[in-house]
């Protein structure tokens, strides 16, 4: 019975990967075919900036000139997006992504059923769950903003990690060692994955923002994306959500460490890296509020922060020694 579930789970995951690959191709074609609409948005943008400036000189405090213009810019973004009716390829790619995601979630759930517990107790299972959550966040966020242009990035990320997981991280279903038998495993790891999902999208937007600010002529699709400022604002909003989840992860991890190891903080390698990531993103939030650091500089911090998340998950888990040796892989 368990053996069948495990096989079924793997088949679902492999199928998901195949469909993700199709989705990736469709997203890439979509990006390649996109071309810029009229240059209307540039005009609107400068008008908005003007009005914000004149407001500043008009009111008593010069309180929030920047923020005022931010809000006005939001409208221009909406207008730009309005011209951006999703192409046939976007729709195909999204359909593939949804199908792949359903298979992916199914495979992950089957793995959990086979193990008789949550499917995130070793690195292989955690990869399945975390990527499912990253893609899930990507799909969910579409209801809030059209971020389909990040599809190629998100799907490529999921594919890579799933590939690594099935080929390099695979371990059999084995029971949990006593230290992992805790409901904190359920909460801590799940929320960490949610945070990772938001950080991933934030980093994707920040990369798009840097490209947009660089103003490359060769990447035609950039013309169809929102302005750098809009990308930055969207990235910020996603990353602060991620930051809240990450803060919770840190606290929940400390509580669990207290239960399992008798101390809530011990500068174990994994704890150190979770802390480093937290501080980088606190830095990012500060950079956004520091004159001279908005724009490309804070965007770089968002990307560095997400790189640290990936580093924490792959390199730290596999090669660093510590109490959190849960990869289930002996090197």
């Amino acid at each position: 019975m368990t053996g069948q579930l495990i096989t079924l789970s793997l088949v679902a995951i492999w199928s998901a990967m195949a469909v993700y690959a199709l989705a990736f191709i469709a997203f890439t074609i979509d990006l390649a075919r996109r071309t810029a609409p009229a240059s209307e948005d540039v005009v609107v943008r400068s008008a908005a900036a003007d009005s914000a400036l004149s407001y500043e000189t008009m009111t008593e405090g010069s309180s929030s000139s920047g923020r005022g213009s931010t809000a006005v810019l939001e409208r221009t973004a909406a207008r730009v997006d309005g011209t951006l009716r999703s192409s046939k390829w976007t729709r195909i790619a999204m359909a593939f992504t949804v199908i792949a995601w359903i298979l992916h979630v199914g495979g992950t759930v089957l793995r959990g059923l086979a193990a008789g517990r949550v499917p995130w107790a070793n690195m292989f299972e955690f990869s399945l769950t975390a990527t499912a959550i990253v893609v899930g966040v990507f799909l969910a966020v579409q209801f809030w903003q059209d971020l389909k242009f990040l599809g190629a990035y998100v799907v490529a990320f999921a594919l890579l990690l799933l590939g690594l997981a099935t080929v390099n991280f695979y371990v059999d279903v084995i029971p949990l060692p006593p230290a992992l038998q805790s409901y904190w495993l359920v909460i801590h790891v799940f929320v960490a994955s949610l945070g990772t999902g938001f950080f991933a999208l934030g980093a994707g937007l920040s990369i798009a923002q840097l490209l947009q600010a660089g103003g490359s002529k060769r990447l035609k699709f950039l013309g169809t994306l929102p302005s750098a400022v809009t990308l930055e604002n969207m990235a910020y909003r996603l990353i602060v959500v991620g930051f809240v989840f990450w803060t919770f992860t840190l606290i929940a991890g400390a509580i669990w460490a207290e239960h399992a190891w008798g101390r809530y903080w011990g500068w174990d390698t994994k704890e150190v890296w979770t802390f480093i990531i937290w501080v980088i993103f606190a830095g990012y939030i500060h950079a956004r509020a520091t004159r001279g650091w908005r724009g490309s500089r804070s965007a770089s911090l968002a990307i560095i922060g997400f790189a640290a998340v990936i580093f924490n998950f792959t390199i730290v888990n596999l090669f660093f020694k510590g109490l959190h040796a849960y990869s289930g892989i002996s090197m």
């Binding site: 150190v272 890296w273 480093i276 501080v279 520091t290 911090l301």
Partner: peptide, 17 residues
């Protein structure tokens, strides 16, 4: 504050190696 935050993140790295 930003500089010190980034420095703190950076300074925490050697202890993990």
């Amino acid at each position: 504050a930003l500089f010190l935050l980034l420095l703190l993140a950076f300074a925490a790295v050697p202890g993990s190696l």
